[in-house]
Design a protein around this nucleic acid. Sequence first.
DNA 1: TTCTTTTTTTCGAAGCTCGAAAAAATGGGC
DNA 2: GCCCATTTTTTCGAGCTTCGAAAAAAAGAA
Lengths: 414, 414
Amino acid sequence: MTAGIRHDEMRKRNRALVIAAVRQAGQPSRTEIVRRTGLSHSTISAIAADLIEEGTMRETGQGEPMPAKRGRPQVAIGLNPEAAAVVCLYLSFNCLSIVLVDYRGEVIEQRKHRLTTLALSRQELLDAVVSAVADIARGHGRVMHIACAMQGIADSAERLLLWSPITPHSNLPIGPTLEAAFRLPVTVQNDCNMMAVALRWLNPDRYGDNFIAVLLSHGIGMGLVLNGKMFTGTRSSAGEFGHMVHEPGGALCRCGRRGCIEAYAGNYAIWRKALGKSAEEPPVADIEAAEMEALAELARREDGPARLAFREAGRALGYGLGNLFALIDPAPVAVVGQGAAAFDILEPEIRRALAETAGGQHAEAISFQTLPKEVPLILHGAAMTALTSLDRETFAPGLSTSANGRAERRAHVA
Amino acid sequence: MTAGIRHDEMRKRNRALVIAAVRQAGQPSRTEIVRRTGLSHSTISAIAADLIEEGTMRETGQGEPMPAKRGRPQVAIGLNPEAAAVVCLYLSFNCLSIVLVDYRGEVIEQRKHRLTTLALSRQELLDAVVSAVADIARGHGRVMHIACAMQGIADSAERLLLWSPITPHSNLPIGPTLEAAFRLPVTVQNDCNMMAVALRWLNPDRYGDNFIAVLLSHGIGMGLVLNGKMFTGTRSSAGEFGHMVHEPGGALCRCGRRGCIEAYAGNYAIWRKALGKSAEEPPVADIEAAEMEALAELARREDGPARLAFREAGRALGYGLGNLFALIDPAPVAVVGQGAAAFDILEPEIRRALAETAGGQHAEAISFQTLPKEVPLILHGAAMTALTSLDRETFAPGLSTSANGRAERRAHVA
DNA sequence: TTCTTTTTTTCGAAGCTCGAAAAAATGGGC
DNA sequence: GCCCATTTTTTCGAGCTTCGAAAAAAAGAA
């Protein structure tokens, strides 16, 4: 049983709706917002006036040069870049990428720190993150949110990094640490989920209510959007696609179990097989991108263990996707990361395996898009997560009239 | 971009909220509704008065004898059983179960028709369904919805039975046929989804926002609730858990493919293996419940092919669940149908396999509940689906005041 | 019988959205 | 260069809805 709709909440929701419409449309006119939200001209006029006066939005002359029509020209409205800023960071193996983004979503500043994540102590790792944030936020007064994306299993509610391949430590309190240091709301999310969020913003036609983002890199990750919502099981991890069992008792996986998809399709698995090593060989910690590229080139050129390795990877991925599709019906797939660069080698085998599964009944109709660079995608997803959270929680509840007082009183009581 | 909230829609939603609260609580007082919905006393008083005047709800004296407290006694409110009735039917192998249910959810009448579904022509099957509905609805004027649950793959939007093991025909237009015959809204759903809906109503504490209902019977079916919503992929089928691949290229499945979970854990698979037949043997159409029961008894008593068959079934189920849990995190499981009666034999092997998967990290913590009888569950789920649909679409939009006219005009325009 | 307590209804206030009409801002035509 | 047509945006009054406070109702307790 959800709460009933109160009168003041209606305004709050409609404000949020207007902000969302502007964020999606870029620089819509009031009339365009009317069309998108279904609200009346009068209401949009009132809400827009409020939001402009509060500094959340601003009139931006003519955004795109509208086709010169007769009649009063439309006034474009955009989000005010100075209304807020957010810091987004992506913690991955030996690398901390960090960006400062304005309220519109434009990157203000961008840095990359190299660090040996496996060697750092708990405290050193936390310190590195805190100082990177402090560093990039320095001199920018309006930072209002910090969004963290990370490899591994995150607990979004508690904002912990439960487990990650990049560090031997578990239950890292990234969220609480940042919150204590900066007194700002912090979100902690799995990197693949952030990819999915980004894809949705970048290409809503293709990535609509149901789709899958697969990260093929040293490990295998997945972000799942189902029924129009990011799916994040009970924790924020879910989508442990890479650790579905492909062959019971099969190859040794980084997670210590056997036969996982990742143990056939992760970089380390392809590398291991291509170099003729045993499937029992413990996974190496990292492989240079150039080295994987060289293996792919070799596999393209000649028949041999390299080609076999990629084939086996494709087969594991195909069966895995087929099993997934059996559960959730076929949906568009985005293949992101290192593996996207070698997708030409993987694809035939993926489709062959898919065709043998229930989910792949029309295997040829399933559509893949490849995006080799994952980092910009992940950071963009984190930024949009942070910004939409601001939209809702900071800019929507602030009512301009006295109803505000009422809402606040209620909040204190509850 | 969803539609904005209009003023009249607020009332509509709050009316729906009140109806839902009453349906869940049974016979709440107005004060109890206030507590559940978070709306004010005045609002509840007004909405309740409207709904009672319209005949949707009624005051029902004291529902349960409230503990005699001081003060004005609470007046229990309940749904008016005469406000509507719905017909729910379940079409399964050789059997058509059908019930008439009042608006409160109580069964008024209940019948069971035997028919040889595999032998019937398209038209004969449709006619059988229509005449069964006409039969049970005769003399009950207020039937307002027909809900169909069926084995197989349903297209809920078009209300077709796309494919089913119970008939050689495909794309059966069950929904359109019933709609044409009775001029009533008709819903068509997969049987396992209806089980899940029912479980949620019967035990909301256990079956909350994420859980799994598995039907172990001649075939294997699954209903999935994720993020508090029935998950029904792009069509209403999804959850083809039984056709996830357990062993690539393995045993022959009823679907014609190889290695599906069902080809190890369906009744026909257990029977085939227990009787020492080859895994290549084409699946038989049906097996008597008594015969399966006898096999289970044999497996309990002595080591041998029967026990082996159940073990293999458990192993396939365990790996399948483990792979599912890898994707969606562990969740409570309800095991329904024939297989629930033999769950004592299956469980150890299920847990053993689970423990070898990523999703089964804490295999012993995953909790199973067994419910041997699936039919009442399926019919109850269909009834609740029909009734909540009525709640929303028939009783919530009917505003008592003149705002109604406005909403109707709008609906015509749109 | 009167007082206390709890539930339910009534009543006025405040806020929101809406439709219609007015105002604003521009291009087109003569 | 002026006036009209057209489109966008704002203004204004009406109509609902929710809410809080106070009153009314309906019992048990003293």
